[in-house]
Design a binder for these strands. Structure first.
Length: 353
DNA sequence: CGGGTTTGACCTGCGC
DNA sequence: GCGCAGGTCAAACCCG
């Protein structure tokens, strides 16, 4: 069974924050899509339902849309911090999970048997799991992501993923060949071998409350498509990292129940440094030699006010937060440690020579 | 003019 | 086989 230490330790780290913030990281394993194949669609809509239920709730003062489930986050207490939510007397993992009505369609009963919403969201048995932080916008008030507990499919999935990765290496090689003079039809090259599934890249989804669709995560993206989403009035946009040969893609869509909820799904891993880092961002007061993306900076500034405050009040390096967080994440099998590694490469490299 | 966006067409996988 | 839906392509368009 999966280790469930992650959320606990993570929440300890997040106890630094005084603010009522939620930060969930939804790792979406390779075979899962935010939407798509019928088999995955269930998860997709559940994700929508759950998140919408979660985020359709606004803090006191804001308009509150109870949502179809009628789940009232305020019963959980919107004023509680992430830590409070996880540890506080108001709600334990199990009750939170139940109240959230979370019952991800993962085969082994993702939220069953002691599993809880938060735990499961933060737990992933997939060793290939990579994770992330949350892209935030200035107006984001709540961010969430989800981890798919791959459950019993993991073994098989890992094998499949490995095969796919191998295939992708071939594709990469072919791309190189193309770059060196091949002018064959891209469509032909892009066409996957028969019977071969896509979606081998690690994925993780961020759910952010934001008015803007395209969140600045420090990387440059080029939109390559937009599709209407079934059962949703909001289209899904497809972006590719503009850096040459960077395989990372992301999809951005809004919750059909709460248009302020932006679901961003990242796929793949950047094979380069964030342009924001490269050009030297000045978003934070202190220099950020170890902060690779504005993405993290936003995290620091908006999602972790306490930390931000510390930064301004003397601690020159907000990365101490991540530095303190990473070991816990590593120890706790936090599924998205990999993304943190992506996001804070030098930090990780520093701690992991 | 280069880079990004829009948008219709096309491809693919899956269920029926 | 057909229809549906997600994902991608690429020409046209836009903008600085």
């Amino acid at each position: 069974m999966h280790s469930l230490k992650g959320p606990t330790e993570l929440s300890s780290a997040f106890s630094l924050s005084h603010q009522p913030r939620l930060l969930f990281v939804f790792h979406v394993s390779g075979a899962l899509s935010m939407a798509g194949d019928q088999g995955r669609e269930h998860y997709h809509f559940q994700l929508h339902d759950e998140l919408s239920a979660l985020f359709s709730q606004k803090p006191p003062g804001g308009a509150v849309d109870p949502g179809p489930r009628g789940f009232d986050l305020q019963t959980v207490s919107p004023l509680l911090s992430f830590t409070d939510l996880l540890h506080g007397p108001v709600m334990d993992y199990d009750s939170l999970g139940r109240d959230l009505g979370l019952s991800c369609s993962a085969p082994s009963g993702v939220l069953g048997s002691g599993g809880t919403a938060s735990r499961e969201l933060m737990t992933d048995g997939n060793d290939n799991a990579r994770g992330g932080a949350t892209p935030l916008t200035p107006n984001s008030s709540v961010s969430s992501s989800s981890t798919e507990a791959a459950g019993e499919e993991d073994g098989e999935r890992c094998k499949k993923d490995q095969l796919k990765l191998e295939d992708e290496e071939e594709e990469e090689q072919q791309a190189k060949d193309d770059d060196e003079g091949g002018d064959t039809s891209k469509k032909v090259n892009k066409t996957k071998k028969k019977g071969e599934k896509r979606q081998s890249q690690p994925r993780f989804a961020f759910v952010t409350k934001s008015e803007v669709d395209h969140l600045d995560d420090g990387y440059r993206w080029r939109k390559y498509g937009q599709k209407a989403v079934k059962n949703s009035p909001y289209p899904r946009s497809y972006y590719r990292c503009t850096t040459q040969k960077c395989p990372v893609k992301k999809r951005v869509e809004r919750s059909y129940q709460d248009h302020t909820i932006v679901i961003t799904t990242y796929e793949g891993k950047h094979n380069h440094q964030s342009p924001a880092t490269a050009r030297g961002s000045t978003r934070l007061i202190a220099p950020l030699p170890m902060m690779s993306t504005s993405f993290c900076q936003e995290l620091m500034m908006h999602q972790i006010p306490q930390l931000s405050s510390d930064t301004q009040q003397g601690n020159p390096n907000p990365n101490v937060f991540l530095a303190s967080l990473l070991p816990s994440l590593q120890q706790s099998h936090f599924p998205d440690y990999g993304l943190l590694q992506d996001i804070v490469p030098s930090l990780v490299h520093g701690s992991q020579p």
